[in-house]
């Protein structure tokens, strides 16, 4: 009989709630969103997701092999799957296949593994890839199919993989994009004149957002993450939108418009909650979320890009270590929290 000698604790619940479990829960939580997207924007979303997953797993395996790491062990943690899924949800449903390929490959190879892999990447890989695609291929990235006008499954498939000529007129900008390029019009005129801002379109977006919110609430109840980052982000975004729309309702969109269009909900519950790239403490996460919300509003309202979640998150990723330094919790028995790094001994 040989007795095992290891350090305490001897019990843990991570056998049931490991990293794999967390990732599975995240994937599960995206299901309502996927369904809503598919309902409104057609099969493109599902096809994109499947293709992105394949690419992601292949890239991950390839890099792990090059890094001489156990492939099975790392594939099982599911982080690549989540990355691919989030990216696929963020890009337009009818985006061509190579867009997905480039995005996912860049996310996995460069944004994740080049920085050391799981747990070491300072920037959210999905958002890095999204930003790359948005900057490199702005047209492809902003062409969304109008709700309920999506082609059939085979049509979509052919469209995505370039097997059939593109259907014109079926695509349009997202509401945010349309809103962005709406110079010299009051909001009312704009909403009436632009197809992307018709009430059906808006309803579709709102519905999708609500589906993400549902998934996020599920994750919160399963204690996959704490409320701090999403609430911080949504709160600050709402406050910003409220202040500005009160100031001039003709120019600045309403709170609900900001909350329920674009990637706001997806970002709040699936992007800023990515544990690796945010601040560490709960206080830090709250600050992180607030920062993201403020930046989203600023970029949306005053920047050049229609949607701002990716840039806001990336910018706050930069700031995360800094936030960490100044958001240490106060330890038991100490009057105040430590701030910053230890001073050099003299």
């Amino acid at each position: 009989m040989s007795l095992l000698a290891i350090t305490s604790p001897h019990m843990n619940k991570s056998n049931a709630r490991g990293v794999g479990f967390i990732m599975t829960q995240v994937v599960l939580a995206t299901v309502p969103g996927i369904l809503a997207m598919t309902w409104f924007f057609g099969w493109g979303t599902i096809i994109n997701i499947c293709f992105a997953l394949l690419v992601a797993l292949a890239c991950e395996a390839l890099v792990l092999k090059l890094r001489k790491r156990p492939i099975g062990f790392y594939l099982k943690d599911g982080s690549a799957i989540v990355t691919a899924l989030l990216l696929a949800l963020a890009i337009p449903p009818l985006a061509p296949w190579w867009l997905t390929l480039v995005g996912v490959a860049f996310a996995i190879i460069v944004a994740k593994h080049m920085y050391g892999g799981m747990g070491y990447n300072p920037f959210n890989p999905a958002m890095v890839a999204y930003a790359l695609l948005l900057v490199s291929f702005p047209v492809d990235m902003t062409q969304w199919v109008l709700p309920d006008t999506a082609p059939s499954f085979s049509g979509t498939f052919q469209h995505i993989f370039g097997l059939a000529p593109a259907f014109d007129g079926m695509t349009s900008a997202t509401p945010l994009d349309a809103f962005k390029h709406s110079a010299n019009q009051t909001l009312n005129e704009l909403f009436q004149s632009t197809p992307a801002l018709k009430s059906e379109t808006l309803h579709a977006w709102q519905f999708v957002s609500m589906a993400y919110l549902l998934g996020g609430i599920y994750l919160l109840t399963r204690r996959i993450y704490t409320w701090h980052a999403p609430v911080g982000m949504l709160g600050s975004l709402s406050v910003m939108a409220l202040i500005f729309s009160l100031y001039d309702a003709d120019v600045y969109a309403s709170v609900s418009f900001h909350l329920l269009t674009g990637a706001t909900m997806l970002g709040a519950f699936f992007i800023v909650t990515d544990p690796v790239t945010t601040a560490t403490s709960t206080k830090g996460r709250l600050i992180f979320g607030i920062g993201v919300g403020v930046l989203i509003y600023i970029i949306r309202a005053f920047g050049n890009y229609p949607d701002a979640v990716a840039f806001a998150v990336l910018l706050m990723n930069f700031a995360a270590p800094f936030i960490d330094q100044y958001s240490q919790p106060r330890t038991y028995g100490h009057k105040q929290a430590r701030k910053g790094l230890p001073k050099k001994k003299d």
């Binding site: 890094r67 001489k68 790491r69």
Partner: peptide, 23 residues
């Protein structure tokens, strides 16, 4: 005192050359 627990990355990095500098 307790030894430092070895981590997966450590044990692998000890065996192989590293592709990525942070490894």
């Amino acid at each position: 005192s307790w030894e430092q627990p070895s981590t997966t990355a450590d044990s692998i990095a000890a065996k192989n050359d590293n592709l990525i500098i942070t490894d």
